Simulated scan of single mutants.
Amino acid sequence: MTLELTADLFDGHVGQTFRVGGVDLTLVLTAVERRAMQAWEAEITSRPPFTLMFRGPADAILPEGLRTLEAEGGPAYDLYIIPTHTPSTAHQNYQAVFN
């Protein structure tokens, strides 16, 4: 059985650190952003779309790709992580989008 990833599943992880598998890097989940479902989307899926926002160090940018993120003391998730334009020089932002 495969666990369906939903926004509610990640709500409890906001502010938590995730270790990125295969590299010496951690990301912090900063927000779970929900988007209202369009009528046509409701016809093909029951899961409302959402985006996970992460923050990482500015000096080690993680390339876009499928990554295993393990919550501190918790479960691991395979997520497609994308670095986003980050105006700050103090950190790098990332997102995982679920349409």
Rank of each mutant, 00 (worst) to 15 (best):
T2K: 13
D59P: 08
P63K: 00
T89I: 09
L79S: 10
T17Y: 03
S88P: 04
R19F: 00
F54Y: 03
G21R: 07
L66I: 05
A76M: 06
P75G: 04
D59F: 05
P63L: 00
L79W: 06
N93D: 15
V28K: 14
T51N: 10
L62C: 11
V20Q: 05
N93L: 13
E64L: 08
T51V: 07
L3W: 01
S88Y: 03
Y77P: 15
H91D: 12
R55D: 12
W40S: 15
E70W: 00
T30Q: 13
T30K: 11
V28G: 11
M1Q: 14
L62I: 01
E70L: 04
I61T: 08
E43M: 14
A36C: 05
P49R: 05
Y94G: 04
D78L: 07
T86C: 02
A7S: 15
L69A: 04
T17G: 11
G22F: 00
N93G: 13
I44T: 13
V97W: 07
Q95I: 10
V97Y: 10
E43T: 10
L69S: 05
H85Y: 04
G74C: 03
Q92G: 07
V32K: 10
W40Q: 15
A60H: 07
L29R: 05
G65V: 01
A60R: 10
T6Y: 05
V32L: 12
I44Q: 15
E4M: 11
A96V: 11
P57F: 00
T30S: 13
P48G: 10
G65C: 09
R19L: 05
E64T: 03
Q38A: 15
T89W: 08
N93Y: 05
L27K: 03
Y77S: 12
P75T: 00
P83M: 01
F10V: 04
A39S: 15
G21K: 06
R55L: 04
L3C: 09
L9Y: 02
P87I: 01
T51W: 01
Q16C: 09
I81G: 08
T68N: 13
L62Q: 09
D11E: 15
Y80T: 01
V28W: 03
P49G: 11
Q38S: 14
Q38G: 09
D78G: 12
V20P: 08
D59Y: 04
I44H: 14
F18G: 07
M37R: 10
R34D: 13
I61Q: 13
G12I: 00
P49H: 04
G22C: 04
H13K: 11
A36I: 00
R19K: 04
E4D: 14
R55C: 10
E70R: 06
A39T: 09
Q95M: 14
G21M: 07
I61M: 12
V97A: 15
T51S: 12
P48K: 07
I44W: 11
Q38K: 13
I61S: 09
T68L: 11
L5C: 11
H91L: 13
A36Y: 00
V32Y: 07
V28Q: 15
G73M: 06
V97P: 12
R19E: 11
P63S: 02
E72Q: 14
A90R: 10
T51K: 06
